[in-house]
Design a protein around this nucleic acid. Structure first.
Lengths: 339, 339
DNA sequence: ACTATCTTTGCAAAGGTTTTCAATTTTGAC
DNA sequence: GTCAAAATTGAAAACCTTTGCAAAGATAGT
């Protein structure tokens, strides 16, 4: 099913058929109608290879996320996909970003595939320079990540530095002083950034930062929050509150505390980050910081399409606010301070 | 960066370069080494359009899932993606399959894109004939769905009919007789199938099927399980056990029961289906039926690649067993039967 | 009626690769 | 040293579309 066949049936040249499809205003209304009718009837779709060979465009966007196990990335993927597909693009999602080799595989795959743009979501697994190989590919990139230093790609991100501050201040205003942290994957940029913000906030309020009150886990696994919490429960004195760097970790931690016969929030308050739906369905409900993932994903997709349309468009940095969601996992500390 | 440039640098013809890349055994070892060295050094990657134009292959697979909000499909996507990417394919994921228009958009997109194969995961949104438009595309399809009648596509699926039976028998053996059902989206094939299996099992055990004991919700939203449960709590007499058609619904239902001041499992037992990780982190832990999603996704991907390699390969139907996971949300019914 | 402008159409080149076929070179056996 | 077979290479066709350019036709203004 060629463009040639269509041309023959319509009694016009292939150029005219091509134009009827791609630049309808350039062809006579009557001719156009006839051609498009034949196209529709015959089910013809232009060969994407031949087309791509000429235009260099694939109508394909790559999305790189660390994992789909974390619902926030599921939401990101879904948000981006629905926006993009509405605008005629498809989305190739790369997940399970677990190792540097895997990352290299992904980069190679994207390169050989020729996508029109890339969305890089929270992929700062590799401390420094992880994004360079992608930049080399030389297509527009939008990062859903806080990358203030970088001037070559647009970013859209939640202000998680303020988010961390909000979370800790919430605990501090509830009179907690023995605050522990469950950080996420040590290598990731997001972990480093939140950790810095946490220390800064705690110092500001003159809160002692015990070394044993800092443990870490893996963002993608609730189980990992559980084992991290086990370590914290072995510390004396126990913390009265815990800030977990994401909700998966927080949920794991809550289960651990309850399994050991302690109560949340009575004995220990817990606050998370992300606001995944599950947080509203455990008991007690998880107090957390909301990230508007769906919104972010759509905005990122929109920005990317703008950049593709006008490559000269300057790099933009968009900051979105977080929001504190108070549920039942945090409460006022009534214990005597034995600081 | 052409194949021509490589050829010139290596002092050979483009045919030889092409062969060095695609059929290395056909070119002299020394020449091949030289060519590949130049290829690597220059970062050349064959133009996928030109290649596709000749071969008709895209090295791309489409995955259609109802939503990524349900973790089982996140796992499915991740499992398929990692397997496929290891074998040189990329995965285009279509989610948020909410309406028939959206479905048509997806089908059109897949058609115009020319993928090498399709994985259709639990997409039986549209009662009958929903898969025909995809079959028309005329590429291998593997369905992760129970499609016994269909002889044109391979299927891999969990034996959820037995799963439903196991779930209900678990409740029945715990002495429950007033059993309610929270079914999923009314239009979906999977709902219909599970419903049939449920009725069959209940009839077999001579259990009265009250009409008010059947409510439905939307698989993708826990909230929906909550409101469904509200309806059940308005029925007199109350059911002593509820079988929700998936874990999201079950988790919503549990929250509802607890919010109303009743206890799970003391007042009402709940059992779900899927075994999403969250089920192990709520309290009480969710009793459910396990589906090995990751395994299924990988097997589906594998089957698909086999079919692509050998199109003559006959259609296969693979059935995988479910497993009952007993946690705390179900217990023996001690209430007097007022049947 | 004539010119200038605008609309509509077709021709042909170009895009980068794979693959068939034939030609050439190398190898191995006698 | 000769011949047949095997290995290696290159030329050229084919894949299907988009688009610049030019030609032809239509329209409008004088």
């Amino acid at each position: 099913m060629d463009i040639r066949e269509i041309a023959k049936k319509a009694g016009v040249s292939i150029s005219t058929v091509s134009r009827a499809i791609n630049q309808p205003h350039l062809v006579n209304k009557k001719t156009r109608g006839k051609i498009l009718a034949i196209v529709k009837e015959s089910g013809y779709v232009p060969n994407p290879f031949a087309r791509g060979l000429l235009t260099g465009k694939t109508s394909t966007i790559a999305l790189v996320v660390p994992t789909l196990k974390n619902p926030i990335f599921g939401e990101t993927a879904e948000g981006a996909e629905s926006y993009l597909s509405f605008h005629g693009y498809s989305l190739i999602t790369y997940s399970s970003l677990a190792s540097m080799e895997r990352y290299q595989t992904i980069v190679d795959n994207i390169r050989s595939r020729k996508v029109d743009g890339i969305i890089l979501a929270g992929s700062g697994i590799f401390q420094r320079g992880y994004q360079e190989p992608l930049e080399d590919i030389n297509v527009p990139i939008v990062a859903i990540e806080y990358l203030p230093g970088n001037t070559t790609m647009s970013c859209i991100y939640v202000d998680d530095i303020t988010g961390v501050k909000m979370a800790l201040e919430h605990l501090i205003f509830l009179n907690h002083r023995r605050i522990a942290l469950i950080a996420g994957n040590p290598g990731m940029i997001v972990t480093k950034r939140r950790l810095e913000a946490a220390y800064k906030t705690l110092e500001f309020y003159n809160i002692d930062i015990k070394e044993e009150y800092l443990v870490s886990g893996l963002y993608a696994h609730m189980e990992s929050g559980y084992t991290a919490m086990e370590k914290l429960l072995a510390v004396d004195p126990l913390p009265t509150a815990v800030f977990a760097f994401n909700d998966m970790l927080a949920i794991g931690a809550i289960k651990c505390i309850k399994d050991k016969g302690l109560s949340v929030p009575h004995d220990i308050s817990i606050i998370g980050f992300d606001n995944i739906p599950t947080g509203g369905y455990i008991s007690p409900g998880l107090t957390t910081i909301n990230q508007p993932c769906l919104d972010i994903a759509e905005k990122a997709a929109k920005m990317l399409l703008e950049q593709i349309a006008k490559p000269a468009t300057s790099v933009r940095k968009i900051l979105l606010p977080c929001e504190l969601i108070i549920r039942g996992s945090t409460s006022e500390n009534r214990k005597k301070q034995v600081s």
